[in-house]
C-alpha cells in the first residue's frame, strides 16, 4: 500500500536547541504509528509540525495542514459551546462541504449523539477527549495526528478511546500518535518510532524493537525500550519513556 504521509529530513531548532534532527518516515493508509521516547525527545514537536502548528526549520511533510487531523494532548475545545456547536464551527472553518452532515457523522462515530447539545464544560475527561479527536476528524482527513491522546484518561476511558481510534484505522485513516505509555504502543500500534533528543533511532514493528533489544527485553516493550535507549541514545540522557 502506498504512503499517505511522507516526512522527509525534518529538522527543528529553537535557537541553540535542536529539537528534531533529520527525521524521515512514511505512514500508510490505515496504519497506526506510535511515537515513543523519553521526555524532551521531540515527540510533540514532530506531531505539531505534521499538524501544521509550527513550521520545520528544514525538511518537508507531504501533507498540508488541512489534510491532517489534529488532536492535541489537552482537549482544545470551546467549553461554553456544546459538542455539536464545536463540531459545526470547525466543520465550517475547515470548509467541509456539508457541515451538518459531518457533525452528525462525528457524533455517531464518537457515540456522543445523545450529548450533542451539552456544553463541553459538563463532559467527562474521556468524552472531551473524544470530542477533541472528533474535531481532528471533522474534515475526514487521510491522516490523524494525536498527541498523547490517553494521557489524562482512566483505564475505562482509555479502552473506549483506543476502540474508537482502532475503528478509524480500520476505516483507512492513518493515525500517528505519541504516547508515554509504551504498553499502549505495544498493544495498539502497527509500528513504533523511537525518538531520543530529536533523533529517530528506530522505525519498525513493536516485535522488531523487542527483538532488537535482545533477551534483556523479553516481551515487555517498556523494558526493551529502556534497553534499546541505553545502547542507542545519542548522549548520556537515556531512560524509560
Amino acid at each position: 500500500m502506498s504512503a499517505v504521509l511522507s516526512v522527509s529530513a525534518l529538522a527543528k531548532r529553537y535557537g541553540e536547541l535542536e529539537a528534531l534532527h533529520d527525521v524521515s518516515f512514511q505512514v500508510r493508509a490505515g496504519e497506526l504509528v506510535a511515537v515513543i521516547g523519553p521526555n524532551g525527545a521531540g515527540k510533540t514537536t514532530l506531531l505539531s509540525i505534521i499538524a501544521g502548528i509550527q513550521p520545520p526549520t528544514a525538511g518537508t511533510v507531504s501533507r498540508s495542514a488541512n489534510e491532517v487531523g489534529w488532536a492535541p494532548q489537552q482537549p482544545a475545545l470551546y467549553s461554553k459551546l456544546s459538542v455539536a456547536e464545536n463540531l459545526e464551527l470547525f466543520a465550517r472553518l475547515e470548509k467541509v462541504a456539508e457541515p451538518r452532515a459531518a457533525v452528525a457523522r462525528m457524533l455517531e462515530q464518537t457515540g456522543l449523539a445523545d450529548r450533542a447539545r451539552e456544553p463541553v464544560a459538563r463532559l467527562s475527561g474521556g468524552n472531551r477527549q473524544r470530542v477533541n479527536v472528533a474535531l481532528g476528524l471533522i474534515a475526514d482527513p487521510p491522516v490523524l495526528a494525536l498527541d498523547e491522546p490517553s494521557a489524562s484518561l482512566d483505564p475505562a476511558q482509555r479502552g473506549r478511546l483506543w476502540e474508537f481510534v482502532g475503528g478509524l484505522a480500520r476505516g483507512g485513516t492513518a493515525v500517528v500518535f505519541s504516547t508515554h505509555n509504551v504498553n499502549e504502543a505495544q498493544r495498539f500500534a502497527d509500528r513504533v518510532l523511537v525518538l531520543a533528543e530529536g533523533h529517530l533511532l528506530f522505525d519498525g514493528a513493536p516485535v522488531t524493537l523487542l527483538r532488537d533489544a535482545g533477551e534483556s527485553g523479553g516481551d515487555d516493550l517498556e523494558r526493551a525500550l529502556v534497553s534499546f535507549l541505553e545502547t542507542h541514545a545519542p548522549t548520556s540522557k537515556r531512560g524509560p519513556a
Binding site: S64, A65, A76, Y78, F90
Partner: peptide, 13 residues
C-alpha cells in the same frame, strides 16, 4: 486558555 489557538492558526484562520 481553551487551547483552541493552535487549532485555529494551523491554516484555518
Amino acid at each position: 486558555e481553551e487551547r483552541t489557538l493552535g487549532r485555529l492558526v494551523r491554516g484555518l484562520v
